[in-house]
Structure formats: C-alpha cells, structure tokens
Amino acid sequence: MSAARELPAAEMPELPLLSVDGLSKFYGARLGCIDVGFDLYPGEVLAIVGESGSGKSTLLSLLSGRLAPSAGRIRYRMRDGELRNVLGLTEAERRLLMRTDWGFVHQDPAQGLRMAVSAGANVGERLMAVGQRHYGDIRATATDWLGRVEIDSDRIDDAPRAFSGGMRQRLQIARNLVTHPRLVFMDEPTGGLDVSVQARLLDLLRGLVDDLGLSVVIVTHDLAVARLISHRLMVMRQGRVIEAGLTDQVLDDPREPYTQLLVSSVLQV
C-alpha cells in the first residue's frame, strides 16, 4: 500500500544546508542579537518574526554575510557536499557564493535592482556574473523568468523605474532566482506593498519555493505572511530567540508570554 509513494531519499535529505550556532552581534554595548542557533534543511522555509528592534534584521544581515558577527559560527553546505565555515571563506569565495548559490530579496526593490537599466538586463546581469556570455541565451532566460514572475515579456526593455511596486518586487525575485540559488534570504519582501499586491506576491513566492525546492530564511513582522509561507518559525525579542518550532504550532499554541501577546494582537477580518 505504501511502497509506491515513499518520497525519494533526495526529497528529504538528512543533512542541513545551513548550520548556525552561538551567533551574536553587539553594537558597542548595545545588543543586536545573542546566541542564535538553528539548522536549516533543504526545502525548508524558516520565518523570523518579531517587532521592530527585536534583532531580526540584524540576524538576517549576519546570516547573509552582510554584517560580521561578534561571536558564533555559520556553516553552509557547498554544492560539493562539504560543510564550510562561511566566515572563513576568502572574499572571492564569499562573493561567488552570494552571486550564485544565495539570493537576497530586499524589502525595498530599489536596493536589490539597478533602477536605471532594463528589466531584462537586471535579470541578465546575474547570469553574466556566473559566466554566461551568449546574448541570445541570456535574453531568452530573462524573458522566461519575467514570465515566471508574471511580468509581460513586452516590458523586458523597460527600466524598473517605470514599474509599480509589486512589479519591481517580482523583478527583484526573478533577478535572484535566475541563477538557481539554493538558499534565499528575504527581508520583509511584501512589506511595502498594497494588500492585494501582497497576496499575489505571496502566492507567487509559495509556488516558486515549492517548485524549486528552495531553502528560505524570511524576516517578517506579519504573522499571516509567516503562516502562509513558512514551515518553521523563530520568534525574536530583545535580540534573543524566545520561541521556535513548527509554524502552525507556535501560532496556534504559543507558549511564551510575548508570543501569546503577538498572536493575540493580530486583527481578525
């Protein structure tokens, strides 16, 4: 009855893609985040929630190599299977990782895009960074990716300056995913958007994450976004992870006083 539907072993590999322990950041005497540790497995979406100043953005910057930690360790499983200390990589290795195997989706698309060059060039640039040179191939791949993020192909030569907020965010996602990264960091990706645009983007993200088997670390203050898109949740407060677990378990049965407050503060419609 069950033999035919066992998932292939590759679908649930037992080795973490990202392994973090004791990660801390101090800004002088001020605390950014302290003693954060977790393992992220292939295909897992981890949401980090908390209010402004909770340390969630600091943590994302540390994880993605945009900020140096005061203490702790970040290890990443390279495509050859080796678990490497990210902080010990050479600058060239780290940049290659960020251009190819990792993605970063900013809340403000202007930070992740080049606003003055065309949509096609924004996507194509990441491909050229990994060594693609054939103009026709690059343009074909860029067109394909614009389609996947629901941007009409006749907009390929327009600059994102001429795009709406939602389109810019979808373009930023295409730019990140075109190199088939295995790990994508997202900082409030739906943050600045109208609610109707948010729903479309979330649905698009869910589909892409499933189809591509991406691992994602997403920072959001919106518990509904976390519920819709993540498997696991970490709740941060004053720089510490105060509660973590299966997303619907933490949201349906919050244990910590602060998590109970967060969950009960969400307006129901």
Binding site: G245, L246, D248, Q249, D252, D253, R255
Partner: peptide, 8 residues
C-alpha cells in the same frame, strides 16, 4: 490538534 501537531 495534538495528533496533527498544531498543539503541543
């Protein structure tokens, strides 16, 4: 919900 894991 405990069986399904929604509740601890």
């Amino acid at each position: 919900k405990m069986i399904y894991g929604n509740y601890r």
